[in-house]
Simulated assay, not measured.
Amino acid sequence: MPSKIDPNDWDANFSAKGPRQQGPLGVLLQTLLVLGIAGGLGYGVWLLNQSLDEQNAANNATATAVAPTMFARATQRALQATQAAIPTATPNLPLGRSLATTPLRFEPDERSGSKGNINPNDSLQYIESREVNGVVWWNVRLAERANTDLPAADLGTNGWVVATSVTEPSAPPPVVADATAVPAGPIDLPTAPIDPSSVILTRNSNTNMSVSHPQAWTEYVIGDDLAVFFSTATDGEQGILARKVIGKSEDAAGIQAAIEETINLLAAPNTQREYVINASEGTVKFVRVVRSQEAKIQAFVTVKPGPGGSLGVIVSFVPESGYAANEAILQQMARNAIVQ
């Protein structure tokens, strides 16, 4: 049957107001556009990944190159610190050892101050030798201690010792021929005046003696159990010593002997003393080792009768340079001592 033509079909499909139909060319163009966009996005993603991979490779190469350098620098610093912490002996110095406990002295002289001791079998380095008044001295350095339990000078300390107290060196060190020693003379320490208002009286129950002293001074053990000693330190340059001396007569000879025995507790060995004693009182000048250095000391001394025929010897002292300024208070402290 012939189709029926509806006059309205033309207007519905082909009029200017009707729906537009897309042809094959339009479909092709749309397809190409979609494919182009998708391809561009994929290529962009690929480029981004490639760039990231290259950057990571470069970072890894840099880290690989820098790490050994950093490790090498750290290792070098550690080695330098370790080497700095290890004491090294001075090269080319002959070696030997100590034969006895001996002080390392500032100068080649028995009167010179001590820097500390060396002890038997301590290892020494020999710096130079010197002959003084017919006695050979070595200037040695303490390199290694044989017994760390004994008191000794610090490692590396050098000082003078008599040759008979050490072994012969492994090789001859430099010799100073025909040297004349200049003894390290005792020093004269500065002294502040003692404040009389600070002086108190303290009784010692062990000796049953009472002693006047500045309150800041401390009691130390010195000599035998019949002595009382107050000072700024065990080797202080100021102090007062009271001691009972047994077996001495109460005459000039007995008093002098008692004073000399007591001064021996304070003075450096083998040093000169200058006594000016009138009856039972007077002054004494002597040398005392103060902080490892010999110092000039002057003292006021008084002697009192004690129980059982004993003599009480009281010595109050300061550095020689300060004696005149402190003489009155030194006399007062010594005379106020009570010997029972």
Rank of each mutant, 00 (worst) to 15 (best):
V136S: 06
I255A: 00
N270K: 14
N133R: 14
L99D: 06
P172C: 04
P196W: 08
N204K: 05
V199R: 04
A84Q: 11
A61G: 05
P319G: 03
A177T: 10
A295P: 04
A65V: 09
F300L: 07
A171N: 10
N117F: 10
S231K: 00
A153K: 09
P19I: 06
Q298N: 09
G42Y: 14
L124S: 01
K17A: 11
I240H: 03
V289D: 15
G39C: 12
G239M: 01
P269I: 07
L47Q: 15
L32I: 08
F286E: 00
F229I: 03
L311H: 05
E168N: 13
T90D: 11
Y220Q: 04
L99G: 07
T191R: 10
R291C: 00
E250G: 06
W137D: 07
P193C: 03
L52C: 10
V34C: 10
V132M: 08
V289Q: 05
V27S: 10
D235Q: 12
S197K: 06
V221M: 02
A268F: 13
T69Y: 11
N92H: 14
Y126L: 05
D251P: 01
P108T: 08
E144S: 12
I37C: 13
E110F: 13
S231V: 01
V211Y: 00
G312N: 02
A216L: 13
T101Q: 15
T191C: 14
V182L: 14
F286A: 03
P186M: 09
A177W: 03
N158D: 09
D149E: 15
G113S: 04
V34I: 15
V313S: 04
G312C: 11
F14R: 12
Q125Y: 04
V27P: 00
G282V: 02
P307T: 11
V318P: 06
K304A: 09
I297H: 00
A227T: 15
Q238M: 02
P103A: 15
V140E: 07
V161G: 00
L33G: 07
S112T: 11
P174A: 07
F317E: 02
R77P: 00
P7H: 12
G282N: 04
G308I: 09
T302L: 02
P190T: 03
L29G: 11
G116W: 10
N204E: 11
I277N: 06
L226G: 06
A233I: 02
Q76Y: 12
V175P: 00
Y220L: 06
Q272L: 12
F317G: 01
A328T: 15
